[in-house]
Amino acid sequence: MSAPIIELRGISKRFGPSYDAAARLGRSIARRLGTEQKNEIVQAVDRVDLSVASGEVVGLVGESGCGKSTIGRMVAGIMPPSEGSVLYKGQDIATLPPDRARDAKLKVQMIFQDPYASLNPRLRVEDIVGEAPLVHGLVKRADFATYLDAQLRRAGLDPAYRRRYPHQFSGGQRQRIGIARALAVQPEFLVCDEAVAALDVSIQAQILNLFMDLRRELDLTYLFISHDLGVVEHLSDRVLIMYLGRIVESAATEEVFSRPNHPYTQALLAEVPRIEARKRRFTAITGEIPSPLAPPSGCHFHPRCPHAMPRCVQEEPQLRDIAPGHRSACHLNDRL
């Protein structure tokens, strides 16, 4: 396998309230009076390691609130990690000199879920797509028109629409504008955060096909974040399953779908609606995802796990190899 283009080492992200001077004073008084407020820190991502090889498509799957979008944002460089480091081609972005860090960040672009919220409604398509390459000097003024036309055409948009505003486009076309904007700065790595979730099935198929064409054409690497296992299975070479801030399983796509190891992965796969299914009884994983404000001790999944043992309540299972290229974080694997 080729060298990793992106590597995350022990990366964590915590969100907490920011206190102004008055609130800090209040809290310190409360502490002295022995009525300290409870901890309000959300551990969105908890010591995650992840590496994506050049040319690979990695699918990141999990339910809402599991931290998958936060990982995507840290990879794309639009959110700094609380702990750990993001390496681009082996170099820690945080320690690079500013101009080189900027170039590295430019090579990683992001495509967002909501094609309505992610485009500035007051800018024309030519500015949305063309501003970044001009600012970063990737294209000269004189060549701008040709460059822009090529960018729009590549994303399946008619260059004649360049002077239109986002509201004049349908959802699928807006997503194409978002793709054209990301590709206009000639990235090597795309983070797609639920990029097709808001689209109708037939439009979704068109956009997924575009992603696959672009991958071949431009030799792109993808981190594909989605809660839709069907989409992830179709597109990815490798799949990571996340639960409450931690990666619980990772393996090649066929391996995950044919031999899921972690009880959470197994439950998730059992719930995926399949068009091949006919009139069946639906069952459900009991309980809901616990609040990340107060995650369960030990293995985060133990309150919902049908195989939970006393050990799962106390001890956090480590992600380790259970077969070549297949990693899982479950105490059950120790009994085999």
């Binding site: 099935v201 299975e233 179709h234």
Partner: peptide, 12 residues
């Protein structure tokens, strides 16, 4: 156009 009806990695 449903992904699971298609071969993995092939165009939908």
């Amino acid at each position: 156009s449903v992904p699971s009806r298609n071969r993995r990695g092939e165009k939908l």
